[in-house]
Simulated scan of single mutants.
Amino acid sequence: MDLPPHLIRARMIRRYQRFLADVRLEDGRELTVHCPNSGSMLGCIEENGEVVLSVSTNPGRKYPHTLELVKVAGVWVGINTARSNALAREALENGVIRELQPLAAIRAEVKVSAHSRLDFLLDHGGGRLTYLEVKNCTLAEDGLALFPDAVTSRGTRHLGELLSLVQAGHGAALLFCVQRGDVGSFAPAGRIDPAYAAALGEAAAGGVRILAYRAAPTPGRILLDTPLPVRLSP
């Protein structure tokens, strides 16, 4: 995936109110920008750290600049969760995620209950279907990608829905889109959300496929192309 043209380099001042951040441009001006990440972004905010912004041409936006990448310990991290589904779809269409091949069709935003949707429904042909949920992962410790970075009741609910689909005879999978290149494996962040970690283990034991793929973002391009081992046990 190519990021939008005319990206802007800046330095982080602070992030606040979940979806806002203040940055300092190279000419010294300060801007408030949109931060497209509902998580805590634990470990991703360094004061005066390098960041990359995209600029919207939509005149109706209050904050036309969007935070795309942050540099942490010398590594670029993709924090725009709105891009994770597009990254996953690109990888699926290019045959990168071999565990979910072959693919005849991909349908997005599939309603599975009165109050919930999952990200994709994959048609493998011959009547074989897989429901797929995608989660963006930015937290890392000692080379290990971790999710979530804050307690997520919504994420736990999605795991329950995926498990129910398997129990009803359907295929179901969860894909962690890890947007940083300094990790070699994935695990649930049980220290942060033990309920989610337990639910992930139950889902895996019940037949939900748990996958993790890594991208190594650069200012300009993000490519989800590297499978990571998934560690569900401590």
Rank of each mutant, 00 (worst) to 15 (best):
V23C: 05
L144I: 13
I222W: 06
R29A: 14
G127D: 08
L211A: 02
L174Q: 04
V166A: 08
S116R: 15
A82C: 09
V134T: 01
R191S: 08
G190M: 00
R221H: 08
T66L: 09
E50S: 13
E90R: 09
R24I: 07
T130P: 04
R191D: 06
R157G: 10
V96S: 06
G184P: 00
M12F: 05
L87T: 01
S113H: 00
R98G: 11
L92N: 11
D142L: 12
T152Y: 00
R117F: 04
R11T: 13
T138D: 02
A145T: 08
N80S: 05
L87G: 05
T57M: 07
E202K: 15
L100I: 07
G78I: 04
D149Q: 01
G160L: 08
C44N: 14
G74D: 02
D27H: 04
L129K: 14
G60L: 07
V77I: 12
G95S: 00
H115A: 10
K71W: 00
G28C: 07
K71G: 00
P194F: 10
P64Q: 00
D142H: 13
A198D: 11
L146N: 02
L103K: 04
L42Y: 09
C35L: 15
I97V: 14
A140T: 03
R14P: 02
S164Y: 00
L175M: 05
R24V: 06
G220A: 05
L103M: 06
E90W: 12
N58S: 13
A88G: 06
L165M: 13
D119V: 00
A197R: 07
A216M: 12
I97N: 03
D123M: 08
A91K: 07
A216D: 14
G125N: 11
D225S: 13
L163M: 13
A189G: 10
I192R: 15
A215R: 08
A204P: 11
G28S: 02
A108R: 11
F176S: 05
L3Y: 11
N85K: 15
L67R: 01
E202Q: 15
K135A: 02
S40Y: 05
L129P: 06
A172K: 01
E133F: 07
D193Q: 05
A140F: 03
R11C: 08
E68F: 09
G49H: 06
A205L: 12
L7H: 06
G171V: 02
R29K: 15
N48F: 10
L53P: 06
N85L: 14
T226F: 00
E30Q: 06
V110L: 12
L129I: 14
P219Y: 03
N85C: 13
A86R: 14
A189L: 07
N37F: 04
